[in-house]
Design a protein around this nucleic acid. Structure first.
Lengths: 258, 258
DNA sequence: ACGCATTTGTTCGTATGTATT
DNA sequence: TAATACATACGAACAAATGCG
């Protein structure tokens, strides 16, 4: 592609504006798409370096600046991580320094403490309607339910009820979950090749039911922050639906708007 | 500045690495700083266009690409808005099409409805300790307290308790608040020259007290989403502390993580 | 309706700086 | 020190969107 000067783009205007999309996209967007495809295909694994900008430029027959702009966007979306002098790396959940990339819970007093996990159960069931809809499963398809607690300084603070796309996580058991050190999304990545790249969350305040109250050492009816998270992989394909109940008595959910 | 080739930068390495900072910054960062200063000084008002890239390049004696990169970052931070063929504009809260830029509340059923406001009171008091600390006031300094309700489809959903930096908002009254059409941050912008560019939020689940329950038509003890927002203007100077109590029975707070 | 000027957006090429190994 | 990789900066040309005459 693009062996000719840029003015000749698009070489094949594809289907006109019929398919809804803009029938044309700038060269760097096309390159971005190609890199994305390689990421999705697993050509470069999480944590690994992708080829250098000049290599990619040669491979795609475009200038380094064009590759650079494509990578810029992928880095802005947290799919790639640039490190000057070293290279550009595929983002990963498996080697996050301190904490979970998606967890925005902070203690009221600055000190971020390490968290401990405790798995309550891990079962394979038929997806309930709501879960099936969110994960784009056919009703009756298999889903995996995981429930667990997160502890901060010995106190249970988060109760997670997690539903996973059944087909993608064949062979996931409570043992493998418990044995794995590090964030769950790291395990998904390394053991199942499923990479969470983005998540949409819906936050609400709810009252603790008997189960949640018991697990979190609270009175029934105590207010809890409900965080419903839909996690997406490449192509915005949903692979996990999770409802977390957070005890925000001594922690808060941090966010920044602009 | 930068009348010489880039290799001569920094012209004056300032204090070495003693002051903590990196003692040097790339040219485009310096340009960004200069544009920022002009924004802060009000050289271009919210909603207005800033000079074209070539004009700015001439003014700062750098290439267009360097100006471009500076503007890119300012646009990424939502301080500027680029519009192809028209120019680059100073971001504003005053002409947001549909809704409040900082409000992330969505109805459970897609339809985003227009919101109505009702102001409860607007008083000038001495800042309580917590407010003074957050707004970096001396204890005893004047602060402005505003309380109001937001209605969605006729139902009260949000109860806001707002504290403003006293000196910056002299002459703000309940009347002016009620009379102004559009978001409050728009009024701050046009009437007081105070521009909110960023906010940090802390979310918690709490129980409705008698006041909140009464105002939001809820039973006392009902769970509410508490959104504590610290709004910042240029230079990360805090100018507003706000606690919103959201009834999330039919709405949720939308967030995206990546 | 058409063309023109203006402005941002894209792409190339080249050179040099900075960080890492 | 040298090689490699990303980062910065310049310049030039053309594309696409907008608004005006």
């Amino acid at each position: 592609m693009a062996t000719l000067p840029p003015s000749t783009l698009p070489e094949f205007p594809a289907s006109p504006s019929e398919a809804g999309g803009p029938a044309f996209s700038p060269l760097y967007q096309q390159i971005k798409g190609l890199i994305l495809r390689s990421l999705q295909a697993g050509e470069w694994k999480p944590g690994e370096a992708i080829p250098s900008e000049v290599d990619l430029a040669a491979r795609f027959r475009v200038s380094q600046g064009t590759v650079r702009k494509a990578i810029d966007e992928l880095a802005a979306e947290n799919l790639l991580v640039r490190r000057q002098g070293k290279g550009t790396f595929v983002a990963t959940h498996a080697e996050e320094k301190i904490q979970y990339r998606f967890l925005r819970l902070m203690p009221d007093d600055g000190e971020a403490s390490p968290v401990e996990r405790k798995f309550i159960d891990c079962r394979r069931l038929r997806a309930p309607a709501e879960v099936a809809r969110a994960l784009e499963l056919k009703s009756g398809d298999a889903a995996l339910q995981i429930r667990r607690l997160l502890y901060f300084r010995g106190q249970p603070v988060v109760f997670d009820d997690i539903w996973l796309h059944g087909m993608l996580f064949k062979g996931l058991t409570a043992e493998r979950l418990s044995d794995y050190r590090g964030p769950m999304y790291g395990l998904f990545e390394t053991e199942f090749g499923v990479r969470m790249i983005r998540a949409e969350e819906k936050l609400r305040a709810v009252s603790a039911d008997a189960t949640a109250a018991g697990l979190l050492n609270l009175a029934e009816g105590a207010p809890l922050l409900s965080v419903e998270r839909l996690s997406l992989t490449y192509g915005d394909k949903p692979v996990e639906l999770r409802r977390g109940l957070y005890n925000t008595a001594a922690h808060f959910y941090r966010n920044e708007v602009s």
